[in-house]
Design a protein around this nucleic acid. Sequence first.
DNA 1: TCAAAAGTGTTCAGCGTACACCCATGT
DNA 2: ACATGGGTGTACGCTGAACACTTTTGA
Lengths: 232, 232
Amino acid sequence: MSGSLHYKKHDKNYVAIDSIIFGFDDGKLKLLLIKRNFPPCKGQWSLMGGFVGEKESLDKAAYRILEQLTGLKEVYLEQLYAYGDINRDTEARVISVAYYALIKIDDYDSELGKKHGASWFAIDELPPLIFDHKIMVQKAMRRLRRKTIIQPVGFELLPEKFTLPQLQKLYEAIHQKEMDKRNFRKRMLSIGVINKLNEKDKNSSKRGAYLYEFDKEKYDYLATNGNLFDFV
Amino acid sequence: MSGSLHYKKHDKNYVAIDSIIFGFDDGKLKLLLIKRNFPPCKGQWSLMGGFVGEKESLDKAAYRILEQLTGLKEVYLEQLYAYGDINRDTEARVISVAYYALIKIDDYDSELGKKHGASWFAIDELPPLIFDHKIMVQKAMRRLRRKTIIQPVGFELLPEKFTLPQLQKLYEAIHQKEMDKRNFRKRMLSIGVINKLNEKDKNSSKRGAYLYEFDKEKYDYLATNGNLFDFV
DNA sequence: TCAAAAGTGTTCAGCGTACACCCATGT
DNA sequence: ACATGGGTGTACGCTGAACACTTTTGA
């Protein structure tokens, strides 16, 4: 197993996972970071990470690490990129496979987070990060932007029920630009994967805004049978 | 080094590179495959691959492996995805980072290729491949398709001088559908990154087709200063 | 009554798509 | 002269972008 017959002469390397964990709260796109409590760079801010075991797939490891920090299992998680520069980790040669996760910030287990020294940071107010983590974050942002153009992943970041102004704020945060209210609504509604509910959310206005929910069935139908996103 | 002070307790893994090498010839999109001459799966068709050394970055390893097989150094090479299922390799636990390369098939060193038992296969006539290599190829195809929509990487697959009918055949091969000649030319010329030359290529018709060349300066200018591809 | 956010339509320009004929040349 | 591939222009529909006013309601 560990010593393979034919591969024996080749090197082995440490392989780690680093997770860019996105959340959306208070109208802002945020990242969950931890204060490292082990060397090297102890005490500095870092992405949540961990090593890949010999009997663990990359995806499994990514889910494990995410769950350790957030308590969440069923979240959107996607591989981003493998970082393999020789000196990217100051301690040893570590190849890191970065993943990014989209979580509903309300579901997040803040007790677990505290235990790991985790905090949420607005995406445009990040502290300095160790190693190449900033580069990972930048790539994750680009990926998320592209992704939201062609697939409605944004819903992963909102509660089950959300308002259109909320959704718009999310998109504005992701794309870092303001959008026209009318065009935004038209576009979102025309896609046909959100349903209007008969409830209003009055948290952010006196008048209240209608709540909507994501319709996974309609989405799946369109995604497979569909003229939708046919170039992905 | 190898035994890190703080990471010692963690597992190490074999890390390999597998390369999907695209070429374009005879109006067809092709892949360069090798017949494995070592176990496991000796004698079966496979992507070109190799192990990542302890003192070698992922990109370096990818370039090294590509050069071993093709003799080419300056080619378009991009990381595709990291494959980490526990049993993807039948011999041992190997994490593979897949890269895809676009090469000008004329530049390819066929002697080197022969030495490795390499052959070109049309993309729609591939033999069975070992491990998860077929999945890698499929992902590479999707990536290439998406890429050519938003960036003119197609030129990497053609000789320095090429004709518009050639370019169109390439795009048709990549997207696996026929395109309208007039629309295709209009689109390509309107982008403004190819220059018409005063030469004709008479290889494929009596009348001859004008040769064009890719204009890297114009492309770089548009890519940076540009309203071009602003969502990438 | 007023401040603050929610909600609603129309117009225009640009882009992708459909579509058919003439041109140049070697055999 | 003819067969073969190269080259050209127009019309239409869709989509994204710009743009301003009314509605509701709690304080």
